[in-house]
Simulated scan of single mutants.
Amino acid sequence: MKSKFLTAGLIAAMMVPAVAQAQTREIERDRREVREERRDYRDAQRYGDRKDVREARRDYNDARKDYRESVRDWRQDKRYQNYRAPFRYQQFRVGSTLRSSYYAPNYRPAWDSRWGVPRAGRFQTYVRHYNDLLLVNTRNGKVIRVYRNHFRWR
């Protein structure tokens, strides 16, 4: 049992898109750099002269700019954009049946480990419906699981 779980975890980890991982690593690296530059800036304010403060402030501002650009690039990634459906919002419940147009490929975001949801199984797919994330059985259109306001942070 334990080896099956470990194997499934390793397979899932290998299937995460490399681009998404690289972008996430870049954002984490930039965030860490902002923290370091902020600490250096505070130290320069406490113990340095005007020149040290000016250089530290410039480095801190550059680090913040790099971080903002990384986040903007991540948000502008085309894989996360086409999710608005051409119909008004409807709250789905577990057991609801969807028409096939609701889970067309345009509304199926690629699975990403940052979402904190398990991978979809066989004949299942995740569907973004406004801020909700639905797990749908593609054979019969039944909603298996609903994650309400899952994309509210976007």
Results as ranks from 00 to 15, higher is better:
residue 2 K to F: 07
residue 3 S to G: 07
residue 6 L to D: 13
residue 6 L to W: 04
residue 6 L to H: 08
residue 7 T to Q: 14
residue 7 T to L: 12
residue 9 G to W: 03
residue 9 G to F: 05
residue 10 L to R: 07
residue 10 L to K: 06
residue 10 L to W: 09
residue 10 L to D: 10
residue 11 I to K: 09
residue 11 I to D: 12
residue 11 I to R: 08
residue 11 I to V: 07
residue 13 A to P: 02
residue 14 M to G: 15
residue 15 M to D: 13
residue 16 V to I: 15
residue 17 P to I: 05
residue 18 A to F: 08
residue 20 A to S: 14
residue 22 A to S: 12
residue 22 A to L: 05
residue 23 Q to E: 15
residue 23 Q to F: 03
residue 24 T to W: 04
residue 25 R to Q: 08
residue 25 R to T: 07
residue 27 I to C: 02
residue 28 E to D: 11
residue 28 E to M: 08
residue 30 D to G: 02
residue 30 D to V: 06
residue 31 R to Y: 13
residue 33 E to V: 04
residue 34 V to M: 00
residue 36 E to I: 05
residue 38 R to T: 13
residue 39 R to T: 13
residue 40 D to G: 06
residue 41 Y to H: 13
residue 42 R to P: 01
residue 42 R to H: 07
residue 42 R to C: 05
residue 42 R to A: 14
residue 42 R to D: 14
residue 43 D to K: 06
residue 44 A to R: 03
residue 44 A to D: 12
residue 46 R to P: 05
residue 46 R to Q: 15
residue 48 G to I: 10
residue 49 D to Q: 08
residue 50 R to D: 15
residue 51 K to W: 07
residue 52 D to S: 11
residue 55 E to F: 02
residue 56 A to D: 05
residue 58 R to W: 03
residue 58 R to C: 03
residue 61 N to I: 04
residue 61 N to A: 10
residue 61 N to S: 12
residue 62 D to L: 11
residue 64 R to V: 12
residue 67 Y to V: 01
residue 67 Y to P: 00
residue 67 Y to K: 01
residue 68 R to Q: 00
residue 68 R to S: 02
residue 69 E to G: 01
residue 69 E to F: 02
residue 71 V to C: 08
residue 71 V to N: 06
residue 72 R to H: 01
residue 72 R to N: 14
residue 73 D to T: 06
residue 74 W to N: 14
residue 76 Q to P: 00
residue 76 Q to V: 00
residue 80 Y to A: 02
residue 81 Q to R: 10
residue 81 Q to F: 01
residue 81 Q to E: 14
residue 82 N to A: 15
residue 86 P to V: 00
residue 89 Y to R: 10
residue 91 Q to W: 05
residue 92 F to A: 13
residue 94 V to K: 15
residue 95 G to I: 08
residue 95 G to T: 11
residue 95 G to N: 12
residue 100 S to Q: 09
residue 102 Y to N: 10
residue 102 Y to I: 11
residue 103 Y to N: 10
residue 103 Y to V: 07
residue 103 Y to T: 10
residue 105 P to M: 12
residue 106 N to G: 03
residue 106 N to A: 08
residue 107 Y to H: 02
residue 108 R to M: 12
residue 108 R to N: 12
residue 109 P to M: 11
residue 110 A to S: 08
